[in-house]
Design a protein around this nucleic acid. Structure first.
Lengths: 215, 215
DNA sequence: GTTGTAAATTTACATTGTAAAATCGTCAAG
DNA sequence: CTTGACGATTTTACAATGTAAATTTACAAC
């Protein structure tokens, strides 16, 4: 018989590879590490990673999943805090922004990556789902408390998308220094809170125009 | 003496290269065309493009600049229309969204590209500036007409960033089909309009938190 | 020991961007 | 017309990359 690796060791090595890949990505602020670099980082031969991952994309998916998990954890932390609802909400937003700017490469990897058919990387689907659930739960709390009025799913998406837009524009260097990211974020939050507090929103004409969805 | 290319011919060839590159990018929905493909597309040898552009990045910058110009033109069109202000505003938003979804690769190239030091590609700076100016002019009109209240620069950024956020999430396949892009866009517009119409916005605490700007 | 097989490495190769060398084509001077 | 100079173009060459395939290594059962 051949040497058989203790079940856990394989998983441990996978983890080492994922950690090393993340380190490389963070270090160079780009996804373009080479397999040879990765091997060097872990101290193995360049082809060994292929025993543990199908290919480079597979490794990237694992890094992405891990990033989603850490991101979800970062968003969950303020939920545990014993502060009152409004303060906790601000805390979640702050945590979101802090994570994005502390790990811009990972943030881009998480949300900027071209769509992958679901089911291809179950680990990734689950991690992404967890981050999503954390955000949703928060919004639900706020709406149930009556702080905002409307469909929680819609409201959550509005805050998410607007914050995401500010972040990616900032990361891409598209925001002039003038108003500055934080001022814009404050103004955005305020405008949305104001707009969503009002219970009698008249239906906008053309609300369901359709035909523009990407595949 | 050697054959000297008529001044205009060099520019024409540059343009052919840029057009071909754009065609390749659109065709494969990705920036990763090869120089050999590009040469094949224009019918020259693989190294000839290097006489007209320093390197591949240089070509990409030219494609990007061209995209900004077309984008700016698309946003300017509704401005000429003889409709009233509110309708024109909707038209500009529609044109923005239509462009993004009609040319997702170009849209990403324009706004999703890592920051480039200004002055490296003057042509690009100018094209980007023109798109920016078009958007600003629009917002200025709306604010001057009293439809929205506040600093036009801030207001413009809020609409821009929130719309951009929705678009890139949609392009990345991150938006669930459930509320759907157009419904979210309508809700976002409505919430912002509502929030920005109110003249007495109390200053939010922590409006200038700072320290999170990317370099 | 010998041997079978998983683990790991080594080799090999096609594909990329692009540098450097070689070739070609035109025009001015003789 | 010949020549030669020099810009335009192509050809050749190479290092870097992802990864397939072949090879070697190391341990468990005999």
């Amino acid at each position: 018989m051949a040497r058989v690796v203790a079940k856990g060791e394989a998983e441990a090595f996978r983890q080492r590879l994922v950690d090393a890949a993340e380190r490389l990505i963070i270090g160079r602020d780009s996804i373009d590490f080479t397999m040879r670099e990765l091997a060097g980082e872990v101290g193995c031969s360049p082809m060994l990673p292929y025993r543990y991952f199908r290919d480079k994309d597979d490794i990237l998916a694992a890094v992405r999943a891990a990033a989603f998990l850490r991101f979800a954890a970062a968003l969950e932390a303020p939920r545990e805090a014993p502060s009152e609802l409004k303060a906790r909400s601000l805390g979640v937003g702050d945590a979101y922004v802090a994570f994005a700017f502390a790990n811009p490469q990972l943030y881009r990897l998480m949300f900027n990556t071209p769509p992958v058919e679901r089911g291809r990387y179950p680990e990734l689907d689950e991690a992404g789902g967890r981050a999503r659930d954390t955000m949703s739960a928060h919004v639900r709390d706020v709406v149930e408390a009556g702080l905002l009025v409307g469909d929680p799913v819609v409201i959550g998406h509005l805050f998410w998308a607007s914050l995401h837009g500010l972040i990616v524009l900032q990361l891409a260097g598209q925001l002039a220094p003038e108003p500055g990211f934080e001022a814009l974020r404050a103004a955005m939050t305020q405008a949305l809170v104001f707009g969503l507090r009002n219970p009698d929103l008249p239906a906008l004409p053309g609300a369901a125009k359709g035909g523009l969805h990407a595949s």
